Amino acid sequence: MTVAGGVQLWAEERGDPAAPPLLLVMGANASGVLWPEELVDLLAARHSVVRYDHRDTGRSSAVLDRAPYAVADLARDALAVLDALGIARAHVVGMSMGGTLVQLLLLDAPERLRSATLLCTSALGAGLADVAGTSGLPGPAPALLEYWQTMGGDRDRAAELDWRVEHWRLLGGGVLPFDAAWFRALEERAMDHAGSVRGPVAHALADQAGLDRGAELAAVRVPTLVVDAPADPVNPPPHAAHLAAVVGGARLVRVPGMGHALPPPVHAPLAAAVSAHTAAADAG
């Protein structure tokens, strides 16, 4: 689909088209196919699930070099995906930076959201969006910050796969067992989908203006679920509790052992939490 500025976005629908639509919004520098197939299938049992590639990831247009944009512009891309598919209102799930984008949708386009689910993320103005450094909440683990310095390096396929698998090990948080082969297969699919072995870095370079809006979240009235990932090394506790406290009417649910990743052990509890939340929102 083509959106503002001639940017083309790749998207995929799965499940019964007549079922309640659910839009999955991935994190920074991550294509839509990093939503694991098994998790998407679980969600598709009740929803028409849409996942898509942000600009500068996967099969979507790479544009940052010729047309710089802000992180906030990626939230407008999410709405453009819904528009292109003829979806007036959807349940929306955002992970990591995707959770930041969904918070912007809660503030700027609440009429388009049936419900929101936020996972592995922090409140606007906190965490990686704490540009002023005033939130007082903890930042990412030092080992992760150090590893990020090598992001986007010039590596062949084998070396890049090794880098990405080690990245997932660090993101996983060390509580749940780490299945390196499973994450390698996930990243092999992502590379094949993108047609490139080079890791995307554009979102780390995008303008962060307009993200310091945490004070506005108290006015949210869209049913919102915050998923607490207690082993998350990017947004460690108490980020999830803080987010649930500042978003109007939000509920908090914990997935034990979950870090900043979506390995098989979290698929069933996460899908169950999301589906219960969306069912309650639809009933209400």
Rank of each mutant, 00 (worst) to 15 (best):
E188R: 13
M151H: 10
T100G: 05
V71M: 11
Q149F: 00
G153D: 08
L252S: 03
W163I: 06
P138V: 09
P36H: 09
A276N: 07
E13S: 14
S48Q: 15
R221V: 00
H239P: 13
V255S: 12
V3F: 10
D228F: 00
P140H: 03
H47G: 05
G58I: 10
R55D: 05
A19V: 11
V63N: 11
S196Y: 05
Q208A: 09
L186I: 13
R46S: 15
D130G: 03
E13T: 14
S96H: 08
L171R: 01
A123F: 05
Q103L: 14
A240G: 01
Y52M: 00
H277E: 06
P177N: 03
L119T: 09
A209V: 07
D232V: 08
L74Y: 01
L137S: 04
P21C: 06
V266K: 03
A261P: 02
V71F: 03
D156E: 07
S122Q: 11
G249F: 03
T278I: 07
P265T: 05
Y147C: 00
A204D: 13
G259S: 13
A72W: 06
A241E: 11
E187A: 10
T2N: 13
V274P: 02
R114K: 10
P142L: 01
V102K: 06
A158T: 11
G210S: 09
A268H: 14
F178D: 03
V81T: 11
W168E: 15
L104C: 09
L34K: 11
G133Q: 06
E216V: 01
Q8I: 06
V197L: 03
E216A: 14
E166C: 04
A271I: 11
G136S: 08
V253C: 07
A141M: 01
H260V: 03
L119M: 14
Y52V: 05
R51P: 06
A158Y: 00
V175S: 07
G284K: 02
A271H: 13
R189A: 14
M151C: 03
A28K: 02
A159F: 07
P223V: 00
V227I: 15
L137Y: 04
D130Q: 05
L128Y: 08
V255K: 08
L9H: 08
L24R: 08
A11V: 13
Q8H: 15
R155G: 07
A80Y: 10
G98V: 12
L82D: 04
R198E: 08
A44H: 06
V234S: 04
L107P: 05
G153V: 02
A18I: 09
L43H: 06
G5N: 12
P68D: 12
A204E: 14
Q8N: 12
A90V: 03
L171K: 02
T57I: 08
H167S: 10
G174A: 07
P17S: 06
D228N: 12
S122H: 09
A4M: 04
A67I: 05
V33I: 15
S122L: 06
V102G: 02
H193T: 09
R76C: 12
A80F: 02
A181L: 14
L225W: 09
G214H: 06
R198Y: 00
D77H: 04
